[in-house]
């Protein structure tokens, strides 16, 4: 399979290995040590590290700056970019900025609505949507041109991803929506956190029936629960999240001090089950403010050591 960029993630996936990514949320301040510390906790156990872009619309250190810190440490970043805050001028400009540091991966998102964050009074942009952003990066990379038509000197070489949520409504639009993202040029997909494995498998079967798993690399999103409280919060308060009662009951069934370990166990078991599913090309492990647990999850899931490609 032809490799288009210097991305390690792209090489791992195209060599037929199960890929592993994780994520780092930049701090709500300017101290780079926080990013570096998170990065160093996970760097040996993943192929690349996503850096979130003002997630939940809370103002944070910029994703691009945090990516640069990781890159300078020798960690491969996946630059997350949302269309909420920047128009097509700023998006293209930041893509070039990322490419100037040879950041080789990008994840294109629309972003959580600003009403969830600390600037609810602000206006959102959404000049492009996430699919049009995928098209934009592919156009810049493959045609070597700006959206405006001019040539780019040294076009960005970026492996382009997008998100998919198999659990949001309406369920039946979710596979067609994935097809559309692939048609726009998404080369890899990272999914929303998976807790309802049956529903994920149903979605994945539809994906495979359409042959979409052969056109993109689908990385299953996994987030370990720290407690039954977190599970309930995810179920009731996080838009588009599907947490079955069995997960909550299982966490509630152990002592509070053991719930975190139970959450890790649930996550590892889920990965082991999904590894066997047709269409799953890897795992995106989002251990939110719990990066130190990523190595354990990766090792126990049989995904360590990471392949050298």
């Amino acid at each position: 399979m032809k490799v288009n960029t210097q991305s390690n993630l792209e090489k791992v996936l195209k060599a037929g290995h199960l890929g592993v990514t994780s994520e780092c949320g930049p701090p709500r301040g300017s101290d780079p040590e926080e990013v570096k510390e998170k990065g160093s906790l996970i760097k040996d156990h993943v192929d690349a590290v996503n850096v979130t872009d003002n997630q939940t619309a809370m103002t944070r250190m910029s994703s691009l700056a945090a990516c640069v810190h990781l890159k300078l440490m020798g960690i491969e970043p996946v630059l997350q970019m949302v269309t909420r805050d920047r128009n097509r001028v700023a998006l293209q400009s930041d893509i070039l900025g990322a490419a100037s540091f040879d950041i080789p991966n990008m994840l294109c998102l629309s972003g959580d609505h600003q009403s969830f964050g600390d600037c609810a009074q602000g206006q959102n942009v959404h000049d492009l949507d996430s699919m049009q952003l995928v098209q934009t990066v592919r156009h810049m990379r493959d045609e070597g041109k700006f959206l405006g038509g001019d040539d780019i000197k040294r076009p960005p070489k970026i492996f382009v991803g997008a998100a998919a949520n198999p659990f949001a409504d309406p369920f039946e639009i979710r596979v067609p929506r994935l097809a559309k993202k692939i048609a726009c040029g998404a080369e890899f997909i990272q999914t929303q956190c998976i807790y309802n494995l049956d529903k994920f498998e149903e979605w994945m079967k539809q994906v495979c029936d359409r042959g979409l798993h052969e056109k993109t690399f689908i990385m299953a999103g996994m987030t370990p629960m720290k407690s039954v409280g977190m599970a309930k919060y995810m179920k009731n308060r996080v838009p588009g999240m599907d947490v079955p009662n069995e997960v909550i009951d299982r966490l509630a069934g152990v002592d509070k001090k053991d719930q975190a370990q139970e959450g890790i166990d649930i996550c590892v078991e889920a990965i082991q089950r999904l590894k066997e599913i047709e269409g799953v090309s890897g795992f995106h492990i989002m251990a939110i403010e719990w990066e130190e647990k990523v190595p354990e999850i990766v090792e126990r899931s049989g995904l360590y050591p990471r392949p050298e490609v």
């Binding site: 629309s110 949507d129 996430s130 699919m131 049009q132 639009i173 067609p176 559309k180 838009p239 588009g240």
Partner: peptide
């Protein structure tokens, strides 16, 4: 979000 190509992942 004025999305032109389908729903975001936040629909519940």
């Amino acid at each position: 979000k004025h999305l032109l190509n389908g729903p975001c992942g936040g629909t519940s």
